[in-house]
Design a protein around this nucleic acid. Structure first.
Lengths: 374, 374
DNA sequence: ACGTGATGAG
DNA sequence: CTCATCACGT
């Protein structure tokens, strides 16, 4: 039996808008950790992976793992029947062949209920190795959208090159060639130093704050969800080393140098942390604040700290240059409705990972590079 | 070698939006005076002529005349990659077969560069005789757009008739006939008296003012050729005269004037210098303030004084009535993004001249009248 | 989120 | 050739 209560139907709507063009049918895999989905796009070139953390729901219950095979076009239709701010409850009995969606107006004076027929879908859930990437670019999702859209007018593919200079997107076409160079923004360095790290944050909390859709409000201050003192504290302890650094630079993140170490340590770290603590409790993550969902995007940015206006942050072990199909990148960029920030991770000869993190989870796209030079 | 730096890419974007449906390929003729373009529309019925004055650029350099043959659809695509407020630098080496466009974000942390392939185009640059027109109507561009769009729903063509009564646009269609009569607005008389005059500012410059497209102005006050000294100075005086009248009836008008002045100063910093002494320098014209470009369009209009909201000004030597294809006029009216004011000039049996003047230049459309009565 | 334009299907 | 659906841009 699955029952998940989402504070705003909008999240699901946006999520489906993000993937429905890429994938027609997919299994939503539900288990006690949350709901995830993984699917190849229709032409088997790209892979999309979505995770919705159980903690991101106002209420979440899943007795035993179940795959929910749905036709995404149908689900989209059903979701269109929800208002953005409706409370959405998704239910499914263990034996049922339908998925039940209930939309409850905030005022509670309207309740709509839909049953979506489920289908059997071959789940070709392939494990994705946790790659260590040579380069990671953290940038405003809108900027990414703009660039790939612009360049897609000129040509079919784009060469993305990360170097000390910055990140360059270049495309050649019949009528014109173009390239866009984004330099690293100094302020972005501070801002994104820990982006994505805290997403695996164990919380000492039960799920009390369930409805905090966006605990992040004050994050500008210390970029993540510095919500309550308590929380923060905990976090600090746990994350320990990493956080400590932040604390140190609270003043104003002086340090640029630290970033990299941190970066690295994080990747491994998060897992570790989780392990330690998660094992005990079942909630192992806290929906983080990282990418601000578009919905609440507008937030004041204080003085020198660029909040969401963006800025580009580049982490690089090694110069990387890969070529990708723009068509897919344009498709990926639709997820900007889910987060204001996108991360591109690349290493030579392995698929690009394009990730949008949002409060309740994350959507990741993988796309293999084109081989010959194009 | 050509290098032109434009403060806002928006100007070029709008310019291309204006003509791209009319013309597919065209030569941008660059010389030290600026950039101009002249082309017949695809069906050789209309002619479009664009001038961008060298002084309208933040920086302009063109060592020797070069024609840049471009496909306008391609150029449009490339321009779509610019944000409106990007600084746009257009470059072309003498021998190059590409036109280089660079977009620099104001913040400078994003630099995009595009190379547009050039092509050879038969330049059928035909000289257009400087006609003396029997009637000239100066009116708000938005009004013109509205009228031709409205009438185009009824019929194919419109009869434009200028008489003492005003200007009448009439169209007959299967289902309905319609006509719109615009009477002259008193305030417009003052306002537009000199519209378009000062753009032909004779300069004590070597090559003389040859390129003046409309020498006929002089009927109003003499203003123009007097400019011996600083052109701006001259202009000011000029405007002064005009304004004076306005002042007489209306305090408000002063404001309008100020706006205009301001407008000018905005256009480029060089202007200031010009004020003091430009006779020495090479600029022979002042980008005029006449039609306010849409970009700055929104300006407060005080009380009773119509600032830019328009008013219709009619100059007529003789009653004129001609019939034109609405399809083309609708197309011409797209230039309202470039200027808030349009001028229609007509004489019996010669092509209509439809002109939009803006800060850096002017766009003119010519359209032959239909012969039989339609 | 809405409106407009473009593309594919009947 | 017309209608409907989908996608993109404002």
């Amino acid at each position: 039996m699955l029952e998940a209560r989402l504070r705003e139907a909008a999240l699901l709507k946006r999520l489906l808008d993000s993937i429905k063009e890429l994938v027609t049918d997919a299994n939503f895999e539900c288990n006690e950790e949350g709901i995830s989905l993984q699917a190849m796009d229709n032409s088997h070139v790209a892979l999309v992976s979505v995770k919705l953390d159980a903690l991101g729901f106002q209420r979440y219950r899943c007795d035993r793992p179940i795959p929910l095979g749905v036709n995404l076009a149908s689900l989209t239709k059903v979701l269109k029947c929800a208002k953005d701010d409706d409370i959405c409850v998704v239910k499914c009995s263990d034996d049922a062949d339908v998925l039940n969606l209930t939309y409850e107006a905030r005022s509670s004076d309207r309740i709509a209920e839909y049953d979506l027929k489920l289908m059997d879908i071959d789940s070709d859930t392939l494990g994705i190795p946790d790659t260590e990437y040579d380069a990671r670019v953290t940038m405003p999702a809108s900027e990414f959208t703009r660039i790939v859209r612009d360049l897609s007018q000129l040509g079919e593919s784009v060469r993305i090159e990360v170097s000390k200079e910055g990140v360059r997107f270049a495309s050649d076409g019949e009528a014109a060639n173009g390239n866009v160079l984004l330099k690293q923004t100094e302020s972005a360095r501070e801002k994104y130093k820990d982006y994505g790290k805290d997403q695996e944050e164990p919380e000492p909390k039960e799920e009390g704050d369930d409805d905090d859709d966006e605990p992040k409000e004050e994050d500008d201050e210390d970029r993540e969800e510095g919500s309550s003192k308590g929380k923060k504290k905990v976090k600090k302890e746990k994350v320990g080393g990493k956080v400590k650094k932040e604390a140190a630079d609270d003043v104003d993140m002086d340090d640029a140098d630290e970033d990299e170490d941190k970066e690295k340590s994080d990747d491994g770290e998060e897992e570790k942390d989780s392990d330690d603590e998660d094992s005990s409790s079942k909630k192992r993550k806290r929906p983080t604040t990282n990418g601000k969902p578009a919905k609440k995007a507008k937030k004041g940015e204080q003085g020198g700290a660029p909040a969401d206006d963006g800025g580009v942050f580049i982490e690089m072990n090694q110069h990387v240059a890969l070529t990708f199909s723009l068509k897919y990148l344009v498709n990926f960029s639709k997820s900007q409705t889910l987060s204001n920030t996108v991360q591109l991770m690349m290493s030579s000869d392995v698929p690009l990972l394009c990730s949008y993190k949002f409060g309740q989870g994350e959507i990741k796209y993988y796309l293999a590079p084109k081989i010959g030079e194009e």
